[in-house]
């Protein structure tokens, strides 16, 4: 579902992403681990076509993001690190607005039921998003993915700043999305969550994908050692 091949992007003299190649299939959660500045966000931005690659290509659902920027976005839902919605609108209204941008017209009831499916409490759905926590806002984004029946989820540090309970809730939502057949790419610093939730784990260092492994092949402590070895290299 997500195909990245020889992707390279520099900003001035700084190489942000270098010869990056990986795939995320349906029903997979691919966790990209790496320090700050490793190139995780740039990879996601390349998939979103917010920046253009110098070399290589990124495909969503078999379509090159460079050639079909809007069609590829139709298939995905993106959840940035600091997910912001319109604070004066309710969860229902935000969901209706963003789903409408992909041509999906939701009634208030439809929106409320998607929010409920995403784990948002019913009484919160009609409150102003301005009073929502980060975890609640993420649930609105997951509801958007459900409403759009997104085949692809791109998540940039979704669990940073979440308390353990909220982080665990979010992981459960991702697992649910995975079981529905979504291909999920999640950039994160959270080794524990990557091991627990991910199907595959990619470790990035200075723009390069230095290791790729199956989450089931490693223990938490192995993953930590491998990660730290790459970071110290």
């Amino acid at each position: 579902m997500i195909e990245v091949k020889n992707l390279t992007k520099s900003f001035g003299n700084t190489v942000a992403v270098k010869n990056m190649t990986f795939n995320v299939d349906k029903g997979e959660i691919y966790c990209l681990l790496g320090a700050n500045g490793a190139g995780k966000t740039t990879t996601i931005n390349l998939l979103l076509n917010l920046v253009q690659p110098e070399n290589g290509n990124a495909k969503i659902g078999g379509m090159n993001t460079d050639d079909y920027p809007l069609k590829t976005k139709q298939k995905l839902t993106y959840i940035p690190e600091n997910l912001s919605l319109y604070p004066s609108l309710s969860g229902v209204e935000n969901l209706r607005f963003f789903s409408g941008l992909s041509g999906i017209k939701l009634s208030n009831n439809d929106a409320a039921s998607y929010l409920k499916e995403a784990g948002l409490q019913l009484d919160a759905a009609d409150k102003r998003v301005g009073v929502y926590s980060k975890g609640m806002r993420q649930k609105v984004a997951i509801a958007l993915a459900l409403a759009r029946k997104s085949k692809v989820l791109l998540l940039d540090e979704p669990t940073s700043g979440l308390d353990p309970a909220a982080s665990s809730d979010f992981a459960m939502l991702l697992t649910d999305m995975k079981e529905r057949g979504a291909a999920i790419l999640m950039a994160t610093h959270d080794l524990f969550r990557a091991k627990e939730t991910g199907t595959k784990i990619g470790i990035m260092n200075k723009g390069t994908l230095v290791e790729e492994l199956a989450a089931t092949d490693v223990t938490h402590s192995d993953l930590e050692k491998i990660y730290l070895n790459h970071m110290r290299a």
Binding site: L48, L50, Y78, P80, L85, Y86, F98, L101, S102, G103
Partner: peptide, 18 residues
């Protein structure tokens, strides 16, 4: 400033058009 720009950018409609 609100942070909704990046979410709008990821929508299947041109941000300029929105």
């Amino acid at each position: 400033e609100r942070g909704t720009y990046s979410l709008l950018q990821s929508q299947p409609v041109s941000i300029r058009s929105i």
